[in-house]
């Protein structure tokens, strides 16, 4: 099974819109939403079954037992993350800031601080015709890289004959993106023709080059700035990256999405453009 990851660097370029369309066009039996901070793919890929849910545990969090606490303040003094506060001489942990390092537990003279398992998110696995794996990181959590890996693991439940899995990646260049990239056969970068979009696209391409993965680029909403679109095309030429095409800004795309559909299910200019890009990306993945 080959894995295609859709990335962008910058948020809001249309990654999920494009991923949704590619899933529909390829009739993919295996897809995943690795944007665990702000998952959106489920909003346009209708599921017929209830998902299997699983709690995801990240780093543990500290808790102070007030009955044992002697209020020496040593834990607060040693905490590097400002996660221990005190109010009216009572010490307590700010669990959003707590990184689970265990220093407070180690220094407490009264054995009053303990680390506990903490739920950092929830995984959902839909098993119908194929497999759809997604997750949501709990607010304030920081261990999204591991959750992304867990989401991808859900794809291993796919029927054997599946040829192509499509992964909607996260924005940025950090650890969740790196976790989405590992094991990928190809990455499609959806770029936006703006100064910010180009800057972020260059950063994500630099990150992706560290991995043994084929990289291809397409431009979304290209007609919002033709001259920047040309800059992206030239950049791809200079870097010898396949430039797969351009998708126009399309009011019908928004309408389709608001009806919970992918653009591939609607007759519109952006869908036509994505179909052409789809054919190109298949060649890159399956033909050497």
């Amino acid at each position: 099974m080959k894995r295609l990851v859709i990335l962008s660097g910058k948020g809001g370029t249309g990654k999920t819109t494009v991923a949704g369309a590619l899933i529909k066009l390829s009739q993919s039996k295996a897809y995943a939403d690795c944007d665990v901070d702000a998952p959106n793919l489920h909003l346009i890929t209708r599921q017929n079954t209830e998902p299997e849910k699983k709690d995801f545990y990240g780093m543990p969090k500290a808790e102070i037992n007030q009955d044992l606490c002697v209020k020496c303040g040593l834990c607060q003094e040693k905490c590097r993350f400002d996660a221990i506060k005190n109010k009216n001489e009572s010490y307590y942990i700010d669990s959003f800031s707590c990184e689970g390092c265990g220093v407070c537990e180690a220094v407490c003279p009264a054995d009053a601080v303990k680390l506990h398992k903490a739920v950092a998110g929830e995984l959902s696995l839909y098993r119908g015709d194929g497999v759809f794996s997604t997750a949501k990181l709990k607010m304030g959590s920081g261990t999204s890289g591991k959750l992304v890996t867990e989401v991808k693991k859900g794809l291993s439940q796919t029927p054997q004959e599946t040829q192509l899995a499509i992964i909607d990646g996260s924005p940025g260049i950090g650890c969740p993106v790196i976790a989405s990239l590992s094991g990928a056969d190809a990455v499609l970068i959806v770029a936006e023709p703006s100064v910010s979009g180009i800057s972020d696209m260059e950063r994500i391409i630099r990150t992706a080059k560290h991995f043994d993965v084929k990289i291809a680029v397409c431009v979304n909403k290209y007609d919002t700035n033709i001259s920047n679109t040309k800059k992206i095309e030239k950049f791809c030429l200079d870097e010898r990256l396949p430039y797969l095409g351009e998708i126009p800004y399309d009011i019908y795309a928004q309408k389709a999405i608001n009806q919970g559909k992918t653009i591939a299910e609607v007759d519109c200019p952006s869908a036509d453009a994505v179909k052409k890009i789809y054919e190109q990306i298949l060649k890159i993945i399956f033909i050497n």
């Binding site: 890289g145 950090g174 969740p176 976790a179």
Partner: peptide
């Protein structure tokens, strides 16, 4: 390459 310690 390492996954920078976060979930690889």
């Amino acid at each position: 390459a390492g996954f920078h310690g976060h979930g690889g």
